[in-house]
């Protein structure tokens, strides 16, 4: 009886160690992925023009951000009512929008640097907490939410990108429908490119 109890305790202990180790590996991988993305942003900021910035970003956006999941969550119940073609169009449009937004926002290198402060294992994902600095001044706190190795949400000083998207897209769909939202995305992409 005692022998069985010891065996069972050892099994539970070793399983929990494995889970803990797996979580730690997840955290380390997420931090590494984020570090790579930060280095890419510095490269982007040093690029000659907006088109070049966008070209650097486009392939990495798809790898770094889980755009299908972002699309599904931000569209809420509407997602299940869409055809496969509509879903694909939206994902494609959102990928492009994310790339041009970053290309527009990270225009010039002025000594910005990123620091990874902490990683937190939560439920089935990881939150990596970072700070962006310019010189000694702290510009913003950015928290990246990872699931399955890719980012699905960024919270900047308490403001959640995914929450904002869900609220906005829901509002447009309610008033004007899904096709109008898709059209607005395309207009936003063109306007952002025009302002490079």
């Amino acid at each position: 009886m005692l022998k069985n109890l010891i065996l069972l305790s050892s099994l539970i202990f070793s399983l929990s160690l494995q889970i803990h180790a797996k979580d730690q590996v997840q955290g380390v991988q997420a931090a590494r992925s984020l570090d790579d993305f930060h280095q890419l942003l510095v490269e982007v900021m040093k690029a000659a023009n907006g088109s070049e910035r966008e070209q650097l970003l486009r392939p990495q956006v798809v790898d770094f951000f889980d755009v299908p999941r972002i699309s599904r969550i931000s569209l809420g119940r509407t997602w299940k009512k869409l055809t496969i073609e509509q879903q694909l169009s939206f994902v494609e449009g959102l990928s492009e929008l994310i790339a041009v937004t970053y290309a527009d926002r990270f225009r010039s290198y002025d000594g910005q640097r990123f620091s990874i402060d902490e990683s937190e294992i939560v439920k089935k994902g990881v939150i990596i907490k970072t700070t962006i600095f310019k010189g000694d001044s702290e510009l913003a706190k950015l928290h990246y939410y990872f699931r399955d190795g890719r980012v699905f949400n960024v919270v900047a000083n308490g403001i959640s990108d995914l929450s904002l998207r869900r609220a906005e897209y829901g509002s447009v769909i309610k008033e004007q429908g899904f096709d109008a939202l898709l059209e607005q995305l395309r207009i936003k992409i063109s306007e952002t490119r025009a302002s490079y």
């Binding site: 599904r72 939560v122 699905f152």
Partner: peptide, 9 residues
Amino acid sequence: PVEDFFDEF
């Protein structure tokens, strides 16, 4: 408290 959306998965 931030809506973390992990429950959406």
